[in-house]
């Protein structure tokens, strides 16, 4: 069928076939994935981080499915503060006598999930607002950017704490949306600055003369050219959002009671005797947070270098 059509086309344009015929492929630039791979091979620390992160994430996500809710909610005072290794508790037990390993996995799942959702929400709104303000410029840009400037100077931790205290039906989704309120401004600025330069390129003008609507130009033409920037920003924000969530939980304004979080585990250290004499209670979650956050920023640096040719190592 298609072959028949081809011959028809060739016949119909015969006489129009020009003399100029050159070979197709001239330059082959390496694909994004090849660049990322090469950057990882050049940066051994990032490579190790990526492997550790992959192992940790997969373990946490799969293992968390097999931990019953009772394991993190039941209180058993008799088994309080068991040292690591006793009665089959690999990392000991906490104040309520819960197994630390199971707590760690369940907490990590919650914390990572919340940080991930906040990053998604922040990126989603940040990218949309950044596209609109950078593309339309003028008065739209001025108004939105002044609002964002104002938003950024607000002490966000304090406002989050107030909101968390006054919201009546409070669960982890409320927390995600409340933190999400303060997660998009930085992304907006970043995206806007890139869109400002992209929107001035001729392919955007060509799209306008090709009859595409502003909406189509923003999301079909410009957005794909921001992909690498968005990936980098999401990765680095993800690490930051883990920090914000654990900070809030540590202060007692994070996840509600009964939902374990890395922050609540660390907050066991607010008890002076635990801090001084029972480091096995609070050291594992601290190490976990440090490993995850540092690992993510190493990987994020690799993405950043892959996206920006001037910073590349290889």
């Amino acid at each position: 069928m298609s072959e028949k059509n081809e011959t028809q086309v060739q016949q119909s344009v015969q006489g129009k076939v020009p003399e100029i015929k050159d070979g197709a492929v001239i330059v082959e630039t390496p694909s994004t994935w090849r660049t990322i791979k090469r950057e990882f091979l050049k940066d051994k620390v990032a490579l190790v981080s990526a492997i550790i992160l992959a192992v940790v994430f997969v373990t946490v996500i799969i293992w968390a499915f097999f931990i019953p809710r009772s394991a993190v909610t039941n209180v058993n005072i008799i088994d309080q503060y068991l040292t690591p290794g006793t009665q089959g508790h690999l990392l000991g037990t906490d104040e309520q006598g819960r197994d630390q390993v199971k707590m760690l996995i369940a907490s990590a799942r919650n914390s990572l999930m919340i940080a991930f959702m906040i990053s998604i929400i922040g990126q989603f709104f940040g990218v949309i607002v950044g596209l609109i303000t950078g593309y339309f410029r003028g008065i739209v840009d001025t108004i939105i950017m002044r609002v964002i400037d104002f938003w950024i100077v607000l002490p966000f931790l304090m406002i989050i704490i107030v909101l968390v205290s006054i919201v009546p039906k409070y669960n982890e989704w409320t927390l995600i949306w409340i933190i999400g309120l303060f997660a998009w401004q930085g992304t907006t600025r970043l995206i806007r600055s890139k869109v400002l330069s992209e929107a001035d390129r001729d392919y955007v003008r060509a799209s306008k003369t090709s009859g595409s609507s502003n909406f189509m130009i923003m999301f079909r033409e410009i957005l794909p050219n921001l992909a690498s920037l968005i990936i980098v920003d999401t990765t680095l924000n993800f690490a930051g959002n883990i920090g914000i969530e654990t900070t809030l939980s540590f202060l007692g304004f994070g996840l509600p009671n009964g939902t374990p979080s890395l922050g609540t585990m660390v907050s066991a250290a607010t008890d002076p005797t635990v801090l001084a004499t029972k480091p096995y209670v609070w050291v594992p979650p601290v190490i976990f947070i440090i490993v995850i956050c540092v690992g993510i920023s190493f990987v994020g640096q690799v993405f950043r270098r892959a996206a920006d040719a001037r910073q590349r190592l290889g």
Binding site: R201, D202, Y203, A206, S207, E221, A227
Partner: peptide, 8 residues
């Protein structure tokens, strides 16, 4: 070059 979208 700049008049053709590099991602399309």
């Amino acid at each position: 070059l700049s008049s053709l979208n590099p991602k399309k």
